[in-house]
């Protein structure tokens, strides 16, 4: 097998740097909108501004699991057909799982910091919070299982299977928790569906900024994993060549 030499092309690096710069600019605009420009919410006061960072993370935390599931299915498809592509899918799977955990962690944390002044408690077992906790648990257990099952092809296969299970479980637990919580009294909380138009700039700039940031981080983590895989393949290839020389 002819492995391409590690790409020394500057194009991906320049693209990543440009993306990073754009993400930072958009995030800076989003920050300015959220903190200084958007009017203060009437009932909650300034604390409500947590929402502008909370919402993008909560939304993106629901997007990356789909990337993880798609990558895992691609891995299972390519496993026997094209090992190098399969490794790429696996790299995307681990990257998206880690990014999911980061975003959901932040979603839970900022949600909790918002809940204390809003509801007087750090943690209300309401439908949405509980669903996100389950989501967090599923992807943390995926990452731990990856670690336990070793970094070989077998471990990747097992991880891909777990990822499929997790992706199927998310909508079911969403429904179950919805039913569970609508039967019991839960703290009343304002629907964030009815958002006044004057708050939109802060919401949209931050969603755009964190989406740019999130997919950039996903790409960086993916290329790190790809780099590790390439080094491993090279080492394995060198070992094979060395063993051939001895036998001759």
């Amino acid at each position: 097998m002819q492995l391409e030499t590690p790409s020394r092309s500057v194009v991906p690096r320049v693209a990543a740097a440009a993306w990073f710069a754009v993400a930072l600019v958009v995030l800076a605009i989003g920050f300015r909108q959220a903190i200084f420009l958007v009017p203060t919410e009437a009932t909650m006061g300034n604390v409500q501004r947590i929402f502008y960072y909370h919402l993008p993370h909560a939304i993106l935390g629901m997007v990356f699991p789909y990337v993880n599931c798609a990558a895992s299915l691609a891995f299972l498809y390519w496993r026997r057909r094209d090992p190098w592509k399969a490794l790429g899918a696996d790299a995307l799977a681990v990257a998206s799982a880690e990014v999911t955990v980061i975003f959901v962690t932040i979603g839970l944390l900022t949600g909790s910091l918002w809940a204390k002044p809003a509801w007087g408690i750090w943690w209300a077992w309401d439908a949405r919070t509980t669903t996100y906790l389950i989501l967090w648990m599923l992807y943390v257990s995926y990452l731990i299982a990856r670690k336990f099952s070793g970094g070989n092809d077998e471990g990747h296969t097992l991880a891909a299977v777990i990822s499929v299970f997790a992706a199927i479980d998310v909508p079911i637990s969403f429904m179950a928790i919805r039913w569970w919580r609508t039967q019991h009294p839960a703290p009343v909380f304002g629907g964030d569906g009815s958002l006044d138009a004057s708050f939109y700039p802060a919401v949209w700039w931050n969603i755009a900024g964190w989406a740019l940031w999130g997919f950039l981080v996903l790409g960086l983590r993916y290329s790190l994993e790809r780099r590790r895989q390439r080094i491993q393949e090279e080492a394995a290839l060198e070992a094979i060549e060395a063993s051939l020389e001895i036998t001759q």
Partner: peptide, 22 residues
């Protein structure tokens, strides 16, 4: 009221920390 600052700081510490780790 200062949970606002803690929330924004936590977001940047976690996101920045992850990028630094990469």
């Amino acid at each position: 009221p200062h949970n606002l600052f803690y929330a924004y700081a936590a977001v940047w510490i976690l996101q920045g920390g992850y990028v630094a780790w990469i």
